[in-house]
Nucleic acid binder design. Structure first.
Lengths: 133, 133
DNA sequence: GTCTTTTTTAGAATAATTCTAAGTTTATTG
DNA sequence: CAATAAACTTAGAATTATTCTAAAAAAGAC
């Protein structure tokens, strides 16, 4: 069994060789690549694939909750291997995207004036600005 | 002086008749229209205008901080007359977008694990789900 | 009024994403 | 295993929100 093989599974999803490669690329990189950046990476693997397939794979992962799709402004979607709830910080100077975790024990309803009984199925928090150096 | 005329000003921005109409439409409606919805509305006014102009006007308002551009998923941008910091709730069944205010005295840094000294220039919070009837 | 800058405009261009329809792979069933 | 069905991949076309272009119109400055 190769290193990392145990990670290359998404429950309920058939893992074709294309999906494995896309998933591996996402898991191994800490940045937030776009579909076309992933497509470029895929050309150097054992299973180069079409851009449509990259999109198809990503869509399947997102639908299965294994990957998060990150939309900032009208820029191309980016994809995030961290599927737990978290926020994104978009550093203005570099364009880098950082994951920001919630403080333990807190939740959005601590600061938002939401009616009682609101059911949240999805949330996206994006900050833009400058991180200290 | 007509009703509402006093509102039709954006500091630092020349108010052409096209901009006045777009701004009025945004201020008078509580929904979050897209550029093309605004374009349609503009056809019934005294100064029907091109779609490019609607986009130009909106861009100017957003740059001047008078209007907020709301991006949800990859849907067309929507525009929000509420330029103060707030969140957006996207009701799944109807597609309606509601403004959600912050609880007084709270801020995002109450719940997010941000490094000290972080400068936030912009934030976007979008929730999706169901509001109680 | 003349000059300069800004704005508007129609239409073309761009680009991320989705669609289509055919081919390929994988799973299932007898 | 062979046959069939279902799911996946693919190249290329289509879609579509938005931006760009270059020329005309409007507004402001002098």
């Amino acid at each position: 069994m190769k290193v990392h093989d145990h990670q290359l599974q998404v429950p309920g999803l058939r893992m074709t060789k294309q999906r494995k490669e896309v998933y591996r690329a996402l898991m191994e990189n800490q940045d937030h690549p776009s579909a076309s950046e992933l497509f470029d990476q895929m050309q150097d693997t054992e299973s180069p694939m079409s851009l449509a397939t990259v999109y198809n794979c990503l869509e399947a992962f997102v639908e299965h909750g294994a990957v998060k799709q990150v939309n900032i402004d009208r820029e191309p979607s980016r994809y995030c291997q961290n599927s737990t709830p978290h926020a994104h910080f978009h550093e203005q100077e570099t364009g880098t995207i950082h994951d920001i975790n919630f403080k333990p024990g807190t939740s959005l309803s601590d600061i938002l004036d939401l009616p009682e009984g609101t059911e949240i199925s999805n949330l996206e928090i994006t900050l833009k600005g400058k991180l200290p150096q």
